[in-house]
């Protein structure tokens, strides 16, 4: 597992990758990718037992990850590349015809690291619950992780899955919400207010943790704490990570306007000045 300092470096490089990928593709979703960069980097470099060298879609004996909010594909692809699932040079092909890194994650193109496609929102928690249940049925002691957007939890299926996972005592299921408070049409509170999200998850029988989604140490602690609580009471855990849309690039930060918009070359250059190149650009 990487140290906190190492993970900070990876996160900085991943943010550079995201901006450059989306800029090159001239479309894509940078805002949520930047807000969930630290969550996902910490998961892959500091938490999850999953080895790129032996990875299979079936995930036998390994922890598994599902990206429910499929539009966060840029951060997912960049983290996978930086974790060694495929060469970082492949990131230059985002959204291109024939690329393995499709606009949203696909399993049709045999991309290492991706166990299920996503893009149509609100479904990943169900899939991850299925993974967690499958592992339990097989007597496996490994975890299913799933990353969700906060806007995405407006989908009704989310709450079907929430009831299901608690009812079936899926204590090997850890879900993370990228709680950036923004969605395509504006702030979540204005579009479709979700009320007290933490109280909702608690009411559905889940363990909950609220943590700073941009502090790697806090993120790491949250993951470890989630495992501990789950083991103690046999329930799944939702970690609500407080994040900022577009985090790390000042002109993208805190606004829904960068949900699904590519930066121009000038804006990309400006962003690069704000993000340290730590591992070498692709």
């Amino acid at each position: 597992m990487a140290t906190i300092e190492e993970m900070k470096k990876v996160a900085s490089q991943v943010r550079r990758d995201i901006i450059r990928m989306v800029c090159m593709a001239k479309s894509g979703h940078p805002g949520g990718s930047l807000s969930s960069t630290d969550i996902l980097t910490t998961l892959y470099f500091g938490v999850m037992k999953q080895d790129p060298a032996t990875w299979t879609r079936e995930g036998k004996g390994q922890d598994m990850f599902i990206l429910s909010a499929g539009h966060l594909a840029p951060v997912y692809y960049a983290v996978l590349a930086r974790a060694g699932y495929y060469p970082a040079s492949e990131l230059a092909t985002l959204r291109q015809y024939g690329s393995r890194i499709q606009g949203h994650p696909s399993v049709e193109h045999d991309l290492p690291g991706v166990s299920q496609c996503s893009g149509s929102l609100g479904q990943g928690l169900s899939v991850a619950a299925g993974l967690a249940l499958g592992k339990k049925m097989s007597g496996e002691d490994s975890y299913a992780y799933v990353l969700c957007g906060d806007g995405e939890t407006e989908e009704g299926q989310f709450w079907e899955a929430a009831m299901f996972a608690a009812h079936h005592n899926l204590d090997n299921l850890i879900a993370m919400t990228d709680w950036n408070g923004q969605q395509i049409d504006g702030p979540v509170d204005e579009v479709s207010g979700q009320g007290d999200l933490e109280a909702k998850w608690k009411a559905f029988g889940w363990n909950t943790i609220v943590a700073d989604g941009h502090d790697i140490e806090a993120i790491l602690n949250a993951y470890n704490e989630a495992k501990k609580i789950n083991k103690s009471n046999g329930k799944p855990c939702m970690i609500l990570f407080r994040t900022e849309m577009g985090h790390g690039v000042d002109f993208m930060a805190g606004t829904h306007k960068w949900h699904g918009k590519a930066p121009s070359e000038e804006q990309c250059a400006e962003a690069m000045k704000q993000l340290e190149e730590t591992l070498g650009d692709f």
Partner: peptide, 19 residues
Amino acid sequence: GIAEANMVGVASGLAITGK
């Protein structure tokens, strides 16, 4: 339970793990 959408997702997850 009466939650078909979730059931389909759970089924796909189970299938991925080899069920």
